[in-house]
């Protein structure tokens, strides 16, 4: 009994790991189509990973052990999150170990060490990116948690599987003004957290606009594979949360791919139609997101469901 549960949990993690590069590939492909290019195959991310994993790596002479442990920490934190989030079934075997807060804070662990690794090699690019990443993340955090709180108060549970279950039980009644406001706020935060336009540009490498890419600039070879892969898994987990919290019906293997596909298309559309914001306009975007979630909370309290 317990063994099958653990096996199911493991299966879920393997599933997330396997699917994450594909989602990245799909987004890239759709963006290419928007730009009238043929674009790389949707499986390109897998080929990249394999190539990175085969290569030797170059490590900076300034790097300390922080640089070496960061890829490991990123991977294990994101995999742990994978064990806590309902993906293709409402119940999660290890769900008792942590609620939505733990998910948010485990992502914070990842970010904390990535930012340190960015500073570790002594190059100004890394430092700049770390500083910006921490700024963006600090401002995204209240919006993210406040929208999760509003959902938790709607559902009466902060445990992700409980939350999804309760939201699904509400059927059509769940679509209330506060729910929609939270959805918009959540999408904005997800864009910031996954490093997408308008917050960060995932395709540039050597521009002064880069955030996520700047922190991992010194990584190469196998460490880079781990860093990229964990970032993709994080992205998939955030999409999964978005899908399961805002379309909490029919949570099983059959409906999961279409939901994620819709989100991938949505993100690709946003990325293709919006320009990247100047760095000091990003706080405005996140302030809007926070304001929306505050409104959502007040609507929820005053009007109920």
């Amino acid at each position: 009994m317990i063994l099958t549960k653990i096996l199911l949990g493991l299966l879920q993690i393997v599933f997330l790991m396997a699917l994450a590069p594909l989602v990245q590939g799909i987004i890239k492909k759709i963006k290419a189509l928007f730009q009238s290019r043929r674009g790389p195959s949707i499986f390109q991310s897998y080929f990249d990973l394999i190539k990175f994993l085969k290569k030797d790596q170059v490590v900076s002479e300034q790097a300390s052990w922080i640089f070496h442990i960061t890829p490991y920490i990123c991977m294990i934190s994101v995999l742990t999150v994978g064990a806590l989030v309902p993906v293709i079934g409402v119940s999660v075997p290890l769900g008792f170990a942590g609620d939505a807060l733990v998910v948010v804070y485990l992502f914070a662990v990842m970010r904390f060490f990535m930012a340190l690794a960015g500073l570790d090699t002594g190059s100004a690019f890394g430092g700049m990116a770390s500083s910006r990443e921490m700024m963006v993340a600090s401002l995204a955090e209240p919006a993210l948690l406040l929208s999760l709180f509003t959902l938790a108060l709607t559902a009466g549970s902060l445990n992700l599987s409980g939350m999804v279950q309760k939201l699904a039980d509400l059927k059509i009644a769940v679509i209330s003004p506060s729910y929609l406001l939270v959805f918009v706020a959540f999408v904005m935060v997800v864009l910031a957290e996954t490093g997408r336009i308008p917050v960060d540009n995932p395709t540039t490498h050597l521009e002064l606009t880069m955030i996520h890419e700047g922190m991992i600039l010194e990584y190469s070879g196998r460490y880079l594979a781990l860093m990229e892969w964990s970032a993709w898994i994080k992205q998939l987990i955030l999409f999964t949360l978005l899908a399961n919290l805002f379309a909490p019906w029919e949570i099983h293997l059959l409906w999961y791919p279409p939901k994620i596909l819709v989100l991938a298309i949505l993100v690709a559309c946003i990325e293709s139609s919006v320009a990247k914001l100047r760095l000091f306009r990003i706080p405005d975007l996140l302030a809007v997101s926070t304001a929306l979630s505050i409104l959502a909370l007040i609507t929820l309290v005053l009007k109920g469901l």
């Binding site: 290890l94 170990a97 942590g98 609620d99 445990n159």
Partner: peptide, 11 residues
């Protein structure tokens, strides 16, 4: 109730 739970040991 079972509002949420946390097990840092398990984590």
């Amino acid at each position: 109730s079972r509002f949420s739970s946390l097990s840092t040991t398990t984590l």
